Simulated assay, not measured.
Amino acid sequence: MSPERFARINEMLDNRQPDLTLCLDRVHKTNNIAAVIRTADAVGIHQVHAVWPDIEMRVSGNTASGSQQWVKTIKHYHMDDAQQAFRAQGMQILATNFSEDAVDFREIDYTRPTAIILGNEHDGVSLEGIAAADQQIIIPMIGMVQSLNVSVASALIMYEAQRQRQAAGMYGSRKLDDDYCQIKLFEQGHPIYAKACKRKNIPYPAVDEQGQIAADDIWWEKMRAPDFHAAV
């Protein structure tokens, strides 16, 4: 791994915000899902949740531009499962909804641990999602239309959260555990070796402070051994 690549990955890891997340409530258009993930990566969101009760979710790689490698999508079959995950992390839960109970999204304190529920392209946030929320939020609009594309709406909210968190000095201090960071450094810094480890069922080695593989002779011997699976 080059020093530049090593520094870039470490900078990303240092800016991840594990206590800020999104929950896509039955969003089904793959290009919208991918666009949300791409913006999530851009503002330092670590994971995105998706309530997907019926079919497997797919992400459009062209729209995501590889960001799905950096932002994990956690699938839930029911909103209750997602809600429990957020409550376990002490998160306030927000839901985008056009109602009298909704407040301007900019009035929210996003420096608190926060999960933001966004609805699908046709029905918006489900009744279960609204019931799970501590607060409903809205993006004020003065034109003829009353809703934005989910990827656009999510981007506005995410960048407001980023603005508040940057002002509060919440970026630049690593909050992720070392095991996860080691995995990302190895998989993204040494992708050929990472694929070989998966094929040969070899544990990942450590990555040292220069970004290089820190492995003993036994690991290297296993890595250099004939790969029978690759020949099949």
Rank of each mutant, 00 (worst) to 15 (best):
N62P: 00
K198Y: 12
P113Y: 05
A167S: 15
M144V: 13
G143I: 04
N15M: 01
V232N: 04
I213A: 04
R5S: 02
W220F: 07
T30A: 14
V150A: 07
C197M: 12
A131P: 07
G169E: 05
I117D: 00
F98V: 14
A155M: 13
P53S: 01
K198T: 13
A42N: 06
D177G: 07
T96E: 02
D25K: 03
P191G: 08
W219K: 08
I157Y: 14
Q182P: 05
F6K: 02
A230K: 12
K195Y: 01
P203I: 05
Y180E: 09
Q135A: 08
K200Y: 06
Q68D: 12
D123R: 07
A131G: 10
K75L: 15
L176Y: 04
E221D: 13
D217R: 09
A161E: 00
V36S: 03
A231K: 14
H78R: 14
T114L: 07
T39Q: 04
P226L: 07
S147E: 08
I157R: 11
K175Q: 15
S173H: 15
A132T: 03
L20K: 08
D208P: 10
S2K: 11
Y180S: 04
A85I: 10
Y171E: 03
I138H: 07
T111P: 03
L22C: 14
R16W: 06
E107K: 14
V59A: 02
E160A: 04
D208F: 02
K29Y: 09
N97C: 14
V27D: 04
G66I: 05
N201T: 06
I117E: 02
R26G: 00
I9M: 08
A168M: 05
A131D: 14
F105V: 04
S99T: 14
A7T: 10
Q166P: 00
Q136F: 00
P205I: 03
Q17W: 00
S67A: 15
Y159I: 06
Q135G: 04
P53Y: 09
S154Q: 04
S154K: 07
F98E: 11
V27Y: 02
I202P: 12
R16M: 09
A155E: 14
G90N: 15
H229Y: 06
P3N: 09
L22G: 07
Y171P: 01
V36K: 08
L185S: 01
K75A: 11
D14N: 13
P3A: 05
V27S: 02
S126N: 01
A131N: 15
L24R: 00
P113E: 07
R16G: 11
S2H: 09
D81K: 06
A7G: 05
K29W: 04
S65E: 11
V145Q: 15
A34I: 10
D19G: 01
I9H: 08
M79T: 12
E56L: 06
G211N: 11
Q164C: 09
K222Q: 15
R106K: 15
M91K: 09
I213V: 10
Q135I: 05
I139A: 02
G66K: 05
L22H: 07
A133L: 01
I218A: 13
G143C: 13
A194S: 14
C197G: 13
W70P: 00
V51N: 03
H49L: 11
D25V: 08
A35P: 06
S173L: 12
G129P: 03
V125A: 01
A35N: 03
Y77V: 08
I218Q: 07
D19A: 02
Q68F: 09
R16K: 10
A95G: 12
R106C: 08
M141G: 07
Y193G: 02
T96H: 01
R163Q: 09
